[in-house]
């Protein structure tokens, strides 16, 4: 109990003082997760839209289970794939990306992509079919129709992006595997918490945990604020 309270007090001090180690880790986390999220959205949104706007999803019986499996993919398995591909013996070993931030971005993108595709697609599929008919009957071109439907589904699309962010920012296994948890280079919030806890640096671990919680709260708050307006 004593240690917990001490750790909490010390954690708050680290947060208030903007401890350089802390700031470094937060910066790395936002860079890695931000890049992965951007890539996942740039790739996933058009794919999800292209699928969701079709009358019928091509090969739906096969494609949908693949997407759903991707959404539920244990992140550590994604990490394992990336590890094998980027390792010395792997097909992309020549890139020398293993144990760099790039490898972490790759694996987080792979984790986020099915979430963005699947949830965007679901949001578009969930729209009232009457809307599509009505927009077409008002004289929309195909592009105008797609834009209108994406705008109608914007909350679902936003939820997709937020869910993807939440999924990858709090993920440990994959980044640990492919990033290697190297201080000052590939250390993000989650892996740093693991490491500092093991080292007995409970204050720093707790401070990082608080940041992670705040990020989770912020994304959810943002989502609810947007869905009200």
């Amino acid at each position: 109990m004593e240690t917990l309270l001490d750790a909490l007090r010390e954690a708050l001090r680290l947060l208030i003082d903007l401890d350089p180690a802390l700031v470094e880790i937060i910066g790395m986390t936002l860079r890695v997760t931000g890049s992965a999220l951007l890539l996942a959205v740039l790739l996933g949104l058009p794919i999800g839209a292209a699928l969701g706007l079709r009358e019928r999803i091509p090969a739906a019986g096969c494609l949908m289970p693949i997407i759903y499996t991707g959404m539920a993919l244990p992140p550590v398995v994604a990490g394992l794939f990336v590890y094998l591909i980027l390792s010395n013996q792997g097909p992309l070993g020549g890139l020398d990306w293993l144990f760099t931030a790039r490898a972490m971005v790759v694996s987080q993108t792979i984790i986020a992509l099915p979430l963005v595709i699947g949830l965007t697609l679901t949001a578009l599929r969930g729209l009232d079919p009457g809307i599509k008919l009505q927009v077409r009957s008002l004289g929309a071109t195909r592009l105008q129709l797609a834009t209108a439907l994406l705008l109608e589904a914007r909350l679902g699309v936003l939820a997709a992006i937020i869910a993807a962010f939440g999924g990858i920012v709090s993920e440990v296994g994959a980044v640990m595997l492919v990033g290697g948890n190297i201080e000052g280079q590939t250390r993000v919030l989650t892996t740093a918490i693991v490491l500092e806890t093991r080292r007995g640096n409970f204050a720093l671990a707790l401070a990082l945990g608080i940041i992670l919680l705040l990020l989770a709260f912020l994304t959810n708050w943002l989502f609810h604020k947007l869905s009200d307006g």
Partner: peptide, 14 residues
């Protein structure tokens, strides 16, 4: 675009 329609359900946009 010379033709428009209104259906039983108004299908308004968000």
């Amino acid at each position: 675009r010379r033709v428009t329609a209104v259906f039983q359900r108004p299908a308004l946009l968000r």
